[in-house]
């Protein structure tokens, strides 16, 4: 049911962009993209600043290796970092290589029905293929927004289309993006344990990204659109001088694609996709495990007003002497 709702929602959104853009091209080509991008930026900043306010008084480093003790005891530097440099490397491995996903295991009944744990590498592989393809696809889109196109974008395009298959040249990441998403979706659908914990807010972004990927694929390879007009629109949008005249020469399929992208931008700050920022704030990953090596003082400890015994005796010494209580000072 959750799957069907996600699929229907994305289909309806695509058809809205595809079908209604002809009636209101300025709305779908200019107003909604601006609104979506503004909401994306504001929502993103709001979410991250809200996270930044959360106090992390104690280091909750979960580690998978020995921590720093004696010099002669083996330790695991990048699983259990003891200083900022090692922590930085652990974060690099996490952010760039998705190291935590490599720790994914599957449990299967072995001999005597005892559980046997095995590495399950495909989640990591699917995630790597999808995320890096997505990054390259996003960077490639810069060619439509910036004139003249920066040299690094051209270099990425050359590398991506290295095999020069077909016309227009087939990009490896066009395949990687969709294949990665299809795998990640299939995993949710066909792995009973993962399916049990999957929610609409897992399926919806997957279908949304698939919708964007497939409509983009379709635009490039199957039903072509006027790229020059699209670039004119895009460069106009980013310089706040959008031209309404060219909207009519762009195919409805492009507006379907664009509208899904706008929905993604609007949905992004309120969704699980915020893990793009969240991964940097993982408290179990981004802090050195020096709980015992360094004294950590609770940052919101208020100054406690102390009343020492010396002060007490100074205040009440005479009275104490008068009733015969022993005092330290004469």
């Amino acid at each position: 049911m959750k799957v069907i709702i996600g699929l229907i929602a994305v289909s309806v959104l695509f058809l809205a962009g595809y079908g209604l853009s002809g009636a209101a091209p300025y709305l779908f080509g200019v107003i909604i993209p601006y609104a979506a991008f503004a909401l994306f930026l504001a929502g993103f900043v709001y979410r991250v600043l809200a996270w930044a306010k959360v106090p992390v008084p104690f280091r909750i480093t979960t580690t998978c290796g020995g921590h720093k003790t004696h010099d002669w005891l083996p330790r695991s530097k990048y699983d259990n970092p003891s200083n900022a440099v090692e922590t930085f490397i652990r974060m690099l491995l996490e952010v760039l290589c998705f190291r935590s996903l490599l720790k994914n295991t599957k449990t299967q009944p072995g001999d005597d029905n005892k559980p046997v744990y095995a590495t399950e590498i495909f989640l990591w592989l699917g995630a790597i293929v999808f995320h890096y393809s997505m990054l390259v696809v996003l960077l490639r889109h810069i060619r439509l927004f910036v004139q003249p196109t920066p040299a690094f974008v051209t270099m990425i395009e050359r590398a991506d289309g290295f095999f020069q298959v077909g016309v227009p040249v087939f990009y490896l990441t066009s395949f990687g993006l969709i294949a990665g998403l299809v795998y990640l979706l299939a995993r949710r659908l066909f792995n009973p344990q993962v399916r049990y914990i999957s929610l609409l807010n897992d399926y919806f972004p997957l279908f949304l990204l698939l919708g964007i990927g497939i409509s983009g694929f379709w635009l490039r390879y199957i039903s072509k659109a006027d790229v020059i007009a699209i670039k004119e629109l895009a460069t106009g949008l980013v310089t706040f001088t959008p031209s309404a005249a060219i909207l009519s020469s762009i195919s409805p399929l492009f507006f379907g694609h664009l509208f899904l992208v706008c929905v993604l931008l609007m949905y992004f700050p309120f969704s699980k996709l915020m893990h793009i920022a969240g991964v940097f704030l993982s408290p179990t990953r981004n802090m050195a495990n020096n709980n015992r090596a360094v004294r950590h003082i609770n940052p919101w400890n208020y100054p406690v007003k102390l009343h020492t015994y010396e002060e007490y005796e100074e205040e009440f010494g005479e009275l104490m002497k008068a009733v015969g209580l022993p005092v330290e000072k004469e």
């Binding site: 004139q147 003249p148 020059i228 004119e232 460069t235 980013v238 310089t239 001088t241």
Partner: peptide, 14 residues
């Protein structure tokens, strides 16, 4: 990036 790059270099002529 496209916004501030566009603000510096302009939209470019089709």
């Amino acid at each position: 990036f496209p916004v501030w790059r566009g603000a510096i270099a302009g939209a470019g002529e089709p």
